[in-house]
């Protein structure tokens, strides 16, 4: 029960971060990607702000054998840079550039109940499901 509660609270914090940074506004995201237009540095500052916290903290946390709730630390073990990684990231980038949404901000924006956001999230789930079928 406790991991469910902490997951919920931590995600709430994550979401408030996204909103304060205005990453739930696709115009900000497209503005960052539009280097030939009126370039918007906000997303770069968000990445910088996040990495300023995670870069020093992650190695320190990863030294632990177990999490505070006694769970093993589950960190990805894959090391190969293969075609799936690069092709998948490229496809994600194209979708990101088209809509200005990545998964976190899209889910946080569901609270707005804007039909276009709901449509995006449903399509995203379908896309994940399709890729899952190809993977297996």
């Amino acid at each position: 029960m406790l991991p469910i509660l902490t997951s919920f609270i931590i995600a709430t914090l994550f979401s408030v971060g996204l909103i304060i940074a205005e990453m739930t506004d696709p115009a900000r995201v497209i503005g960052f990607l539009d280097i030939a237009g009126r370039w918007d540095a906000t997303l770069l500052l968000v990445m910088g702000g996040a990495l300023a916290v995670t870069l020093p903290l992650f190695p320190w946390i990863q030294r632990r054998k177990k999490s505070l709730l006694g769970e093993p630390l589950r960190v990805p073990t894959a090391r190969r840079i293969d075609a799936r990684l690069i092709i998948g990231a490229a496809i994600f980038g194209i979708g990101w550039g088209l809509g200005g949404f990545c998964p976190g901000p899209a889910l946080a924006s569901l609270a707005s109940a804007i039909p276009g956001v709901i449509l995006f999230v449903i399509a995203m789930a379908v896309g994940q499901w399709l890729a899952g079928r190809i993977n297996s």
Binding site: I10, G17, G49, S67, L68, E71
Partner: peptide, 20 residues
């Protein structure tokens, strides 16, 4: 951007620390 980013980073660190 900076404050929101720091909160996102803090949440990511907490999920690893607390939930693993």
């Amino acid at each position: 951007g900076l404050l929101g980013g720091a909160l996102i980073g803090l949440a990511a660190a907490l999920l690893l620390l607390v939930n693993g």
